[in-house]
């Protein structure tokens, strides 16, 4: 297969970026999009040109490292699939494919297709954690969690932290990410001790760096971990719940 790739090149956060056009003549349908970039880089190195900087790691859809935008869609044309699981078979022979970094004000470009997504980590640091030190937890079998709640918690805990939700949102909101963490920890008994405190601090941090929810649901379509759209409601529910409780109450 022949594909024309328009790839974003940018030397650093302050540098001016541009699209660069390259042609791949031997793409195959079973190649993943990252393997297509591997192919391009191989070709560039052979021609003594600087290869395209892009991030990836597990290439199994679980680490959340790969974050590229394909033809304006985070991760690529297939819904709910990370870039490493997107394939060339989605394109037709001769098609032009535009590859850009995740676009969001809170994700500055570091180089080419690599962006800085540490803003999401700062939301976690603000309160997406559980204050239990090593060795102090009670017997996990004596704390009962219903089968349903464990499965529900896992639906939200599956977030891979890739940032596609932010990039997909016209407002650059991190509601899906933040809500997934709140909805997950709400169902973990040890984490319930700080439920209100967590909601207040995570939401405050989220609002400091990310935009307001656009309510259109693009985030859930882009999410490779299939985080349910209900996560967005969890942000408001947890925030309002915390608002009704006295500020001195942490749970």
């Amino acid at each position: 297969m022949r594909l024309i790739l328009e790839v974003w090149r940018q030397d650093g956060p302050q540098a001016q970026g541009r699209f660069e056009t390259h042609e791949i003549t031997d793409a195959t349908p079973e190649m993943s999009l990252l393997e297509l970039l591997d192919r391009l880089n191989h070709q560039l190195v052979e021609q003594d040109q600087d290869p395209v900087a892009f991030e990836s790691d597990c290439r199994e859809g679980i680490c959340g490292t790969c974050g590229i935008d394909i033809n304006g869609v985070p991760h690529g044309p297939e819904d709910n699939v990370p870039a490493c699981g997107q394939h060339v078979r989605s394109f037709h022979d001769g098609q032009t494919v535009r590859i850009a970094p995740f676009r969001a004000k809170s994700f500055p470009v570091i180089r080419d297709l690599i962006v800085d997504r540490t803003g999401l980590d700062r939301i976690i640091q603000a309160g997406g954690t559980v204050a239990v030190d090593a060795g102090t937890a009670p017997d996990a079998d004596t704390i009962r969690i219903t089968h349903h709640d464990a499965e529900e918690a896992l639906d939200f805990a599956a977030c891979i932290g890739c940032g596609a939700c932010v990039s997909a949102c016209p407002n650059g909101a991190a509601y899906l990410f933040t809500g997934a963490k709140l909805a997950h920890l709400r169902l973990i008994p040890a984490a319930q001790q700080e439920r209100s405190k967590r909601a207040r601090s995570m939401v405050a941090q989220m609002e400091q760096e990310f935009g307001p929810c656009s309510q259109i649901g693009e985030c859930a379509l882009a999410c490779p971990a299939k985080i349910p759209l209900r996560a967005i409601a969890a942000v408001n529910r947890e925030r309002i719940r915390a608002g009704f409780r006295s500020r001195s109450k942490e749970n």
């Binding site: 954690t129 559980v130 239990v132 090593a134 060795g135 102090t136 937890a137 009670p138 017997d139 996990a140 079998d141 704390i143 009962r144 969690i145 219903t146 089968h147 709640d149 464990a150 499965e151 918690a153 896992l154 805990a157 997950h184 920890l185 169902l187 973990i188 040890a190 984490a191």
Partner: peptide
Amino acid sequence: IRVIDHMQAIGAAFAREYGGQL
């Protein structure tokens, strides 16, 4: 043995039986 207790407490959502146990 206590690794499971700890990881559960700090957020790992281990699968549960219908009786609520791990």
